[in-house]
Amino acid sequence: MAELTINDIIKEENLVYKKTKVMTDNVMHYCPGCGHGTTHRLVAEVIEELGIQDKTIGVTPVGCSVLMYNYLDIDMQEAAHGRAPAIATAIKRVMPDKFVFTYQGDGDLAAIGTAETIHSCNRGENITIIFVNNGIYGMTGGQMAPTTLAGMKAVTCPRGRDVNTMGYPLHITELIAQLPNVLSKTRRTARVDFRSLK
């Protein structure tokens, strides 16, 4: 069998992967190595795969991913800090045939928006919450988040998170998993392994 040339490889029938049309061509503002690009793409690919681009409404949080609406080619709303699940609740209630998701960081979802998160889950709102946990406040410059690990240093705990005065990292996903109306909880890692890039 003859070896494939580069021209063979790029033929349409040989393509195994391409950029989803649910993503726009806008250049991302994220820092090098940030996982948001990967998670945005995963969300976009799922929307394409399910064929729900015209039925999906996304809600972006306050945090680095506030500008997610620049990158996904769907209708989106930008929420006040922590309020995305309340907004998503209303969208789904007034348009039950739509698919509604929020995309939230740990500061947004597990600190300022804890009430909205827990109560939307407790009501069993038919929405999807995509929780992107990096254990830090990224956009504002690396302050301690509710999920910052014990002993981990951040600009608002320069000597490391002291659990006696700052509490332990909040296991919000485990908390929510206890609620009877929560349909499913999954955990995935979106991590760039820099060693493999060398």
Binding site: R83, I87, T89, A90, V94, A115
Partner: peptide, 24 residues
């Protein structure tokens, strides 16, 4: 018409935001 008791006034006004943004 949808009627919902929210967990707080903060949540309630943000629900209004969400519904209003859908033209409701």
């Amino acid at each position: 018409m949808v009627v919902l008791q929210a967990e707080s006034e903060v949540a309630a006004i943000n629900m209004v935001y969400g519904a209003a943004a859908c033209g409701m």
